[in-house]
Design a protein around this nucleic acid. Structure first.
Lengths: 205, 205
DNA sequence: TACTATAATAAACAACATGTCGTTTATTAT
DNA sequence: ATAATAAACGACATGTTGTTTATTATAGTA
């Protein structure tokens, strides 16, 4: 009796499907891909694909879930410390460290991330990733944003602003060839957010 | 000899196609829509659709171009004044006024905007809209962002940050039922951007 | 009002993608 | 060695696409 996770044939098949998927998304975009494209590229029979996944959306969702889980772990393990630091007087170190971890993870999974977050990527993934960030910022039990009584704007717009802005910077980094190191990107993102975009631009003193 | 743009049959047909498109995007998302879906909903023959549009992407692109053109006009007419104000000492009035104009336009075209920018919308439209903002911020001839010599971060990340953040707030507003007025939204967006997100949250003094 | 150009229609077409079969072959675990 | 399982193969019904045909309906005009 073989195990689903140890049978070499299954591992090989799924691996080649994943590789083909990433390649094809970068080439023609997720929506333009057919199941036949994937199986031809992966050199497997079309029937075999359907033995493992319901359709291309099922494949994409399952690939995405693995990524989301990892990012979620990183965020949950580090977010409370970030907020605590922000509430203190020197909010400069911890947010930077969390950002470094995230950018290092993105860097390692660059192939999939670029494909999924790029202009030909998967809108539903981008939406879910934003939701993850949004909830981390907004719905967390010990969250400063919703406890704070001196908010100048509604908290949900603050969360949307931050979540979209951060993902926008990540997309720019991925699509322009990741020329900066994860450390440098973490510095950039922290600088803009902590100081405000116009201060970071030198347009406000 | 009838004119392409005045024949009532053509106007009626195109109008019903547009209405059907918006409805269907909200229901099942743009990518899941078939040409048959559109023509059934619009109560026209499928052949008639192909007499006016190449495919559903052609239809979407043409609908989007009208929107983009209007937004682009608003931005181009008002952006120089915004930058001029930012370079002076009291950068608070003009950005707000530009934002009001944009939010009023979005409010008027709420049906299409919600469909196209929503979670089931069109990724390529969102990408192009960001590009439009990005270029307005970054590539404009008389642009302070690229002239400024006291930048703390690379200008393209600043532009990506701002473009994504703004569209994120717009999406949040559209998807949560447009409870705030365009004026209120303009205030919210201006406040976060001019002061920085953490100042707006009261987390930074 | 009656005419005529043309838009809209119904119907059929080949090409292709989808998802599902049953059968055969190859590989794995015990 | 053998039972279990995955992969490959070919075939099938179904649905969508984009195009084309002959026919009907109608808007603008003389």
């Amino acid at each position: 009796m073989q195990n689903n996770n140890t049978d070499l044939r299954i591992i090989r098949t799924k691996e080649s499907i994943r590789v083909a998927l990433v390649e094809l998304i970068e080439e023609k975009g997720f929506e333009a891909i057919t199941v036949k494209d994937i199986t031809t590229r992966a050199k497997i029979n079309r029937g075999t694909f359907y033995a493992h996944y319901q359709d291309k959306y099922d494949l994409m969702t399952k690939s995405e879930e693995e990524i989301m889980l990892e990012i979620s772990k990183i965020a949950k393990q580090n977010y409370p410390a970030v907020i605590a630091t922000l509430e203190s007087d020197s909010p400069s170190l911890k947010p930077f460290q969390l950002a470094v971890l995230v950018f290092e993870y993105l860097n390692e999974n660059n192939g999939f991330m670029k494909a999924a977050l790029g202009p030909k990527g998967d809108l539903s993934f981008q939406t879910r990733l934003k939701d993850l960030m949004w909830k981390t910022l907004f719905e967390n039990e010990s969250n400063a944003l919703i406890k704070e009584d001196s908010l100048l704007v509604p908290a949900q717009y603050l969360a949307s602003y931050l979540a979209s802005a951060h993902i926008g910077v990540i997309q720019q980094w991925l699509n322009s060839g990741r020329k900066e190191t994860p450390q440098e990107m973490a510095r950039i993102l922290s600088t803009i957010t902590l100081n405000g975009p116009f201060f970071a631009a030198g347009l406000k003193k």
